[in-house]
């Protein structure tokens, strides 16, 4: 008798654990496509990017004042 032909995992019905694990694997591999950004969204993204850069410059100014002996 050839016992090597099929493993128990292939002959037995999948357990609840295996089904749930398969669902998690599928969920992990979902790929959402890129969206086309509207002009308003682009303006908001750029505005906030400039805001962050300016604000970080302000922090550097304050830090230099704090560190200066």
């Amino acid at each position: 008798m050839d016992t090597e032909l099929t493993s128990p995992a292939e002959t037995l019905p999948p357990t609840a654990l295996q089904i749930a694990a398969g669902q998690y694997a599928a969920r992990r591999n979902i790929v959402f496509q890129r969206v086309k950004l509207s002009p308003l969204m682009r303006i908001m993204l750029w505005s906030l990017r400039i805001y962050v850069v300016v604000m970080l410059a302000v922090v550097v100014i304050q830090l230099s004042r704090l560190i200066r002996p």
């Binding site: 295996q18 749930a20 998690y24 694997a25």
Partner: peptide, 15 residues
Amino acid sequence: APPILHEDFDRAQDH
């Protein structure tokens, strides 16, 4: 079907 990893089984067990 995507491969099922060790982490998927752990999550499934917790769920």
